[in-house]
């Protein structure tokens, strides 16, 4: 694809925004409450599957199916979180990995979820199942309205781009406000030393559960937007590595700075989509099939190097990170 084609960059923007949402969901749990979720992608997958299944198999209206999808993601967060909030952090990491792997295995192997084929196979191999019938007219109407405002740049992807980034922007503002509130102060204290917080009368478990729920809501939202953007999905769209892309975005942005998430998301979007669709030297040396591996290799390398050399990200203060707990 042409690097100067605006349609390409709009798509990159959508991808970046959705990963930004996933990173924000992770931020609530990890950066704010200190809960390391290593299987965050399961929230996205479960929400997307729940929504698609309800629309396709139970004829539920898209809006309610979406709400149910988010509710399912929250339920998963609580299911994995409730036994783990009392445990040391590393156990939660393992529990979340196990939970997300379970969702992946089930979605790949059940007939209900369309198996490896994914959403199009939800009514069996002979039907072509789709969940976007109600979505298309909605997004088209937004596109039409936008076309009045900005002209021919407005495509469906452009509408999606606006939708995703407005959502992300509003949520970022909300979380920034939350972070500076007394609520955010308690969260921060729990992340730093939960016994100290408890000794001052703060109900640590209740706050951790709130973080799990919030992370589930935002993660589920990311999954639903992603499903609506790509139109059909399969288990491959929710690879476990997605969670670590979100970590990478957080690290790019410095882990503890919420406003750095969009910057990290854009950088990641360019890095990721750039290596996927563009073909210039030296990328042209690697053939298209192998480029996926190269892309993941680069992601891994950046993750290692950033964690090793610049754990505070682009904006963080190193001294802050190195203050002993």
């Amino acid at each position: 694809m042409d690097i100067l084609n605006p349609a390409f960059w709009v798509f990159v923007g959508v991808v970046a925004g959705i990963y930004g949402l996933l990173a924000l969901a992770l931020y609530v749990q990890f950066s704010m409450a200190g809960l390391p979720n290593f299987g965050h992608v399961a929230f996205m997958a479960l929400a997307a599957y729940t929504m698609a299944l309800l629309v396709i198999r139970a004829d539920v209206a898209l809006v309610w199916a979406g709400v149910a999808g988010i509710a399912a993601a929250v339920a998963l967060g609580l299911l994995l979180g409730i036994p783990s909030v009392r445990l040391r952090a590393n156990y939660l990491a393992i529990a979340t990995v196990a939970g997300s792997e379970m969702i992946r295995y089930l979605s790949t192997n059940l007939n209900l979820t369309g198996g490896a084929v994914g959403s199009v196979g939800m009514l069996g191999p002979t039907h072509f199942a789709t969940y976007t019938n109600a979505w298309q007219p909605f997004i088209e109407s937004i596109t039409a309205a936008l076309r009045h405002a900005v002209g021919s740049v407005a495509t469906t992807d452009f509408s999606m781009f606006c939708l995703v980034w407005v959502t992300l922007g509003l949520l970022l503002m909300l979380f920034r406000r939350l972070e500076r509130s007394p609520w955010g102060r308690v969260m921060k204290a729990i992340r730093e030393d939960e016994e100290a917080a408890a000794s001052l009368g703060k109900h640590v478990e209740a706050y951790k559960l709130q973080a799990l729920v919030l992370g589930g809501i935002v993660g589920g939202l990311a999954g639903i937007l992603w499903a609506l953007e790509i139109g059909v999905f399969s288990p491959d769209d929710f690879q476990p590595t997605l969670t670590f892309y979100a970590y990478l975005i957080l690290i790019l942005g410095g882990m503890n700075r919420v406003w750095a998430i969009p910057v990290g998301a854009v950088l990641f979007g360019v890095l990721y989509s750039g290596t996927r669709f563009l073909s210039f030297f030296p990328l042209s040396l690697v053939d298209t099939g192998e480029r996926a591996y190269l892309r993941l290799l680069i992601v891994g390398l950046v993750l290692v190097l950033l964690m090793a050399v610049r754990p505070q990200g682009m904006f963080g203060k190193r001294e802050e990170l190195l203050l002993e707990k």
Partner: peptide, 21 residues
């Protein structure tokens, strides 16, 4: 120090959303 303060309604999520700091 402020963390220690008692009876802070802003420590509740809903109020924190509305009022911030």
């Amino acid at each position: 120090l402020m963390l220690g303060g008692v009876k802070q309604p802003g420590e509740r999520f809903a109020l924190a959303c509305l009022l911030g700091s």
